[in-house]
Nucleic acid binder design. Structure first.
Lengths: 237, 237
DNA sequence: GGGAACAGGTTGTCAGACAACTATACCACT
DNA sequence: AGTGGTATAGTTGTCTGACAACCTGTTCCC
């Protein structure tokens, strides 16, 4: 995470905005900038990004007002980022639930997506993402043991397998191929997300590729509707 | 729409960014600001909003780069193509159901996404896509009347609004921005797709942009699970 | 060949000034 | 007393200029 003042201000300001009721008028820009310890120009850059996300409404001569309170993660899908990173950028406070880490043997399905032999040793990492004590996403990563061993997760692991791999830089990641589905929740997922079986979920199933084209992670993410907005730009041929 | 320089620069810059290949390095901020006729500070505010959307990657001392935002998809989401083409690509023989064409007045929601005044005249085109006598997708396009008039659809229309616009070439289409959701079917959609209310559906809500940055079509597509596979390639920043 | 220093160029931030806009207070008129 | 017009204070929107921090490429020295 960058050390620039902008990043700090962006997240502090997002927290402030999210903590205020709709229609609250924020302090003036010069006042806010002083309070947050940055120049007004840097503050304005942060304001622009929140304005673009629909979190605030700004009126010249009047002031800046908090818009809506629906906490939503809004992101394009083109850049590969962890949900935690996206949440932080959006100023949404999320909390990792307790990790469930297991060693499993690859069945046919997992063997196929990870290009391994049936029976190969895998590390399976599952976790829930909460906001306001409410589970909003359930993430399950399954990786070859040589990429990530079970005991590797005991030392200060922060919860995001993708962030860990990106930070580690070995193997170097290049892209993921993500399949998008709408599903009804299975019992495992329903239990994790505290919803009913067959409730509607958006599911991403992603194969994460390293630079030498190896599949290093098979990640299934389940998202509760209303908390995430994902978009893609599609071009005319 | 505001008359502030920021808004103009934001849209001009977005066009520029969208027209460039991935990894292209943009001109320096001072150069760009001069070219676009604004101060560097205003340019930076626009840059911030694009950075937040994942459209650009900025590196201090290096420059600003276009992020690959064209998802290279197996099933046609990379390129803007009609659902009919995508269905064929997926190996499905599909049939168009009967068109439902109406003239409607823009409510606040439609006025907002189409950048029109509330009450503006719109053409609404709804149709179902069948395979093996089974409805598998329900598509609703809503367009400004001057883009597509109701009586324009009587002469040899094939069923796909997008194909019609592409073939016609006026206005010239450039891209769509598509938001992806999992929803439970509303009664209208459930009726069209012959499923239960609240059954799981994948929904794409797309704003279709012409070359001059006008939203020329708002298209909502509902997909029954199991008949389509949509992929997106997400790249490491 | 490798490392250090330097130059040139870029983004990141700051400070200050002024333009454009809005809300409120005050005054004059009916 | 009520209404309309104007002035003032305060706000966001934009511009300008300067400097910090960072990055890349080149040159020089060991």
């Amino acid at each position: 995470m960058s050390h620039f003042p902008f990043r700090r201000v962006q997240s502090e300001l997002a927290e402030m905005i999210n903590s205020l009721p709709a229609e609250t008028r924020l302090p003036s820009e010069p006042t806010l900038a002083k309070q947050l310890g940055v120049s007004r120009a840097t503050l304005r850059e942060a304001m622009r990004s929140f304005e673009g996300q629909g979190m605030i409404r700004r009126r010249q001569g009047v002031g800046t007002f908090v818009v809506a309170k629906v906490p939503v993660l809004d992101t394009g899908l083109e850049a590969l980022e962890s949900i935690e990173t996206i949440a932080q950028r959006s100023g949404l406070t999320v909390r990792m639930g307790e990790l469930q880490v297991q060693q499993v043997a690859a069945d046919e399905g997992l063997a196929a997506v990870l290009n391994l032999k049936v029976g190969a040793d895998l590390t399976r990492v599952a976790r829930i993402i909460f906001t306001d004590h409410r589970p909003i996403a359930y993430l399950v990563d399954t990786l070859p043991m040589d990429i990530l061993a079970v005991d590797e997760l005991q030392s200060g692991f922060t919860g995001s397998v993708l962030d860990l791999l990106l930070r580690r830089g070995d193997p170097k990641l290049i892209q993921s191929r993500t399949e998008i589905k709408a599903i009804g929740a299975t019992s495992e997922v329903a239990r994790a997300l505290q919803i009913q079986r067959e409730d509607v979920l958006l599911q991403f199933a992603a194969q994460l590729y390293s630079e030498d084209s190896r599949v290093v992670d098979y990640s299934i993410s389940y998202f509760l509707p209303g908390y995430f907005r994902f978009h893609v730009v599609r071009r005319v041929g």
